[in-house]
């Protein structure tokens, strides 16, 4: 099956409509975080929700478009972190299929795994392009690790490993909460339904 045929079959109206909302959630979470003053990003929540409800490819497209639009409205730096978003989409999709959204602790665990991988992917980008500086609250961690004599790449990686698993763990927990609160009738409209509810009946 070629690509256009695959997309035509799988990107149905419910899926692309949800993808748009996924983009909006990714971009809008900055606002939520600022409003409630919580020290997290949560900017991949939309991607994770799409990955769980629709699958890997829709989540990847959601991630790419989110970061493109974010680089238009927030900071152009977002454009260079598309690979991180792709890894999150891929892993979130795989973990959903492995049943990681059936229990809350599994979701948190899955989020932490994704966080570690995201940190590993984004560290070289961040170190090479920006010297680890993103003008965010976590910069002081990079400074600290640098001051203790680590190499730049290592310092950035440690900073990522310190903050990303928590961020992604909470992202996954939030995604789990919203998915578990959703009525069956709504959830069944999306292709990922089978991985989100235990087949009891």
């Amino acid at each position: 099956m070629n690509i256009s045929e695959y997309l035509r079959r799988n990107i149905t109206p419910p899926v692309f409509s949800l993808m748009t909302v996924g983009v909006a959630i990714n971009l809008g979470m900055g606002q939520v975080v600022a409003l409630l003053k919580i020290p997290l990003y949560l900017d991949s929540l939309g991607t994770v929700i799409v990955a769980a409800m629709c699958g890997i490819i829709p989540a990847m497209i959601t991630g790419i478009i989110s970061n493109l639009l974010a680089s238009a409205v927030f900071s152009p730096a977002m454009m260079f972190f598309i690979p991180t978003m792709l890894v999150i989409a891929l892993l979130a999709g795989i973990l959903t299929r492995k049943g990681f959204f059936l229990r809350w602790w599994k979701a948190v665990l899955g989020g932490m795994i994704v966080g570690v991988c995201a940190a590993i992917v984004s560290a070289p980008i961040s170190a090479y392009l920006f010297g680890g500086i993103t003008l965010a609250g976590t910069d002081f961690l990079v400074l600290y690790f640098r001051a203790t004599g680590q190499e730049l790449l290592q310092a950035v990686l440690y900073q990522g490993l310190a903050s990303d698993p928590i961020d992604k763990g909470i992202t996954f927990l939030l995604a789990f909460l919203i998915l578990s609160k959703m009525p069956r009738n709504l959830l069944m409209r999306f292709p990922g339904y089978h991985y989100l509810r235990q087949r009891d009946a």
Partner: peptide, 27 residues
């Protein structure tokens, strides 16, 4: 703050997802 986040986010996301599903029919 965590409880507030959940209390705000869950209805918000639920609204957005349900609306997207209705929009799918319209589209």
């Amino acid at each position: 703050r965590w409880k507030a986040t959940v209390k705000i986010l869950i209805p918000l996301l639920y609204f957005m997802i349900e609306e997207s599903s209705n929009r799918a029919i319209a589209l």
